[in-house]
Write a protein that binds this DNA or RNA. Sequence first.
DNA 1: CATCTGGGTCTGTTTTGCCAACCTAGCACT
DNA 2: AGTGCTAGGTTGGCAAAACAGACCCAGATG
Lengths: 150, 150
Amino acid sequence: MNTVLGKDDRCSVARSLEVLGEKWTLLIVRETFLGRSRFSEIQSSLGIAKDVLTNRLAGLVEHGVLERRTYREEGARERYEYALTPVGHDLAHVMAALSQWGDRYRPTEAGPSRVYIEVATGEPVSVGYTSADGRALSAAEVTVVPGPGA
Amino acid sequence: MNTVLGKDDRCSVARSLEVLGEKWTLLIVRETFLGRSRFSEIQSSLGIAKDVLTNRLAGLVEHGVLERRTYREEGARERYEYALTPVGHDLAHVMAALSQWGDRYRPTEAGPSRVYIEVATGEPVSVGYTSADGRALSAAEVTVVPGPGA
DNA sequence: CATCTGGGTCTGTTTTGCCAACCTAGCACT
DNA sequence: AGTGCTAGGTTGGCAAAACAGACCCAGATG
């Protein structure tokens, strides 16, 4: 995915996908959101080839989405784990939006395996637009206009 | 990306990426959001190989994200265009979330080429969580819990 | 009838992903 | 000191996907 740029580098979606768009990358990010941060955890959970995982983790670290940290369990040597940086954490809305779409249009018989709820009420939460002063907006209230880089 | 499933088919993100995760797919969807719906428009705008584009469009149609329609310009024969279905339209939040992340963390000198604004006020809009009764929620007010399929 | 054009298909080459084998450092056990 | 175990890779060979460019086909136009 590294040279999808070109005439297209002015699009924000393209620039995001430059970092996130390769096969497995978003699934690896999801694993870290679920707290699976170690190489072997991710590898066995996704069933990804080790060389590809090495590759993707390096890319995510390079782009500041993950941070490689050492940890040490008692009686074991130093090992690595990959933790979300603040940059990575800000992918939460991307994850939530993808998750919501998948639940709606590609449901399983068993129902969603994880749901987003409001802490205070326990009611389900969806992804939507929020105005500058914190109101939720419907799709009809939002429009896309050319910006400075257009 | 077609057989990333396995132990992983219970994850909504994985199921979404089953449809959207191949190289180019989300960029093609973005093009249709921008109103570029014809084969040649998409092809020249993205610089994608034609066979790959054929392939991706067929997949998106098969999964109900796009719909192939015939159209006819005056003095020309029937041609095809690929329009978003309601299913595809519901990817708007995914697009917005990706766009917002790209603008924030991979900005260009020129600034964003397109911005999301509130129609009524002209103020910028962001992607966030919305409660069941339509309030905007901060990340701290939302949590993820196991659902029925867990 | 010849020519042009959109929306592809076909072919050969390059890149990427996959799998299995191998490597390395630190720890534990003897 | 020597052996074995394990996490986190690296390497190499093969298969699948992407790429670039040539080719094709039908309807419109001259």
